[in-house]
């Protein structure tokens, strides 16, 4: 059982970068604890900016720093940075073309019973609709490291959603296939394709194994790059399949499922089913309980696929 959350890996990577490059700057909105950034703030106080509970200010200040050559990482709960600061993300980061990486921590339903104010089930849709904004949801700690190492090398803005809790590894430490903006094929298959991002990747990996053991040849694709969506990788993986199932920790509209359906319907029409959170405040519970309730687990995905397959 992995005990290290993805956000802790982000901190590690940013500390390594900050040691070599004084232009790496982290900003928090009273969120250094929840962002696992306390150690960064303590180690590199000159490269850390605390803005208090003011997410709009957080994003604009990050953009101002970036316009003067800083590599800004603004780290704040996903629910707030993505929608409360939405206009600052649109205007000061994307439109003004500043090198601000917007990191939404405790994404999706990570905060569990804290309710809808703290859930970010709209962030993929909102951020993806901004021209020039990239959207990434890494699946495990190893991919998180690769992604942040890659993001440190580019100069464009991006939104990255990370969950709060440790997630089971999808990849092995020394075997992490990663190419920027290219989906990772987890398994091949001929009947069904499962596509997911973020914390839903591990469940589709498990579901693919179970379905294969039951005689349904199932492929699984880690689409951590929701925008730009890897269309080529998706179409290649979808070729010859009879059913595609997308799984995401997001509202049922405007997220990964919508984008996958758009590409499939235009290029290789076939049935696409989207498994997501409901179009309502989610039921109270831990994120694990919420996932189980809505069937967003390995066994839940298997159950849905079997129903459709047999139906």
């Amino acid at each position: 059982m992995n005990k290290i959350p993805n956000r802790a890996i982000m901190c590690e990577v940013l500390k390594e970068a900050a040691a070599k490059d004084r232009n790496v700057v982290v900003l928090c909105s009273d969120s250094r604890g929840s962002g696992s950034m306390t150690s960064f703030a303590d180690t590199y106080p000159q490269q850390f900016v605390e803005v208090g509970i003011a997410e709009q200010n957080l994003v604009s200040i990050a953009a101002g720093l970036a316009s003067c050559g800083k590599k800004s990482f603004a780290v704040s709960p996903a629910s707030f940075i993505s929608t409360r600061s939405y206009e600052q993300c649109k205007v000061d980061c994307a439109y003004s073309n500043t090198n601000v990486k917007l990191v939404g921590i405790s994404g999706g339903v990570s905060y569990g019973a804290l309710g809808m104010t703290h859930h970010s089930a709209q962030d993929i849709a909102a951020m993806s609709a901004i021209p020039g904004m990239r959207v990434y949801l890494p699946s495990d700690r190893h991919q998180t490291r690769k992604l942040f190492e890659a993001l440190l090398q580019d100069t464009q803005t991006a939104y990255i959603r990370l969950g709060r809790n440790p997630v089971e590894d999808v990849y092995e430490e020394n075997n992490v296939p990663f190419e920027m903006n290219k989906a990772t094929v987890l398994s091949e298959g001929t009947d069904v394709l499962l596509v997911a991002c973020g914390e839903m990747v591990r469940p589709i990996q498990e579901a693919a194994k179970l379905l294969n053991s039951q005689g349904i040849s199932t492929g699984a694709l880690d689409m951590y790059c929701v925008k730009p969506l890897d269309k080529e990788g998706l179409l290649k993986a979808a070729k010859g399949k009879r059913l595609i199932v997308t799984v995401e920790e997001h509202a049922p509209f405007g997220g990964l499922g919508s984008m996958v359906a758009q590409v499939i319907s235009a290029n290789d029409p076939k049935k696409v089913i989207n498994l997501a959170l409901p179009d309502s405040p989610v039921i109270t519970g831990t994120s694990k309980e919420v996932f189980e309730y809505y069937g967003l687990t390995g066994s839940g995905i298997v159950k849905t696929v079997l129903e459709i397959w047999k139906g």
Partner: peptide, 15 residues
């Protein structure tokens, strides 16, 4: 937006 952006620019100058 402008004032907050300028706060970032001013902080960068100080850094």
């Amino acid at each position: 937006h402008g004032l907050s952006v300028c706060v970032g620019m001013a902080l960068a100058g100080r850094m």
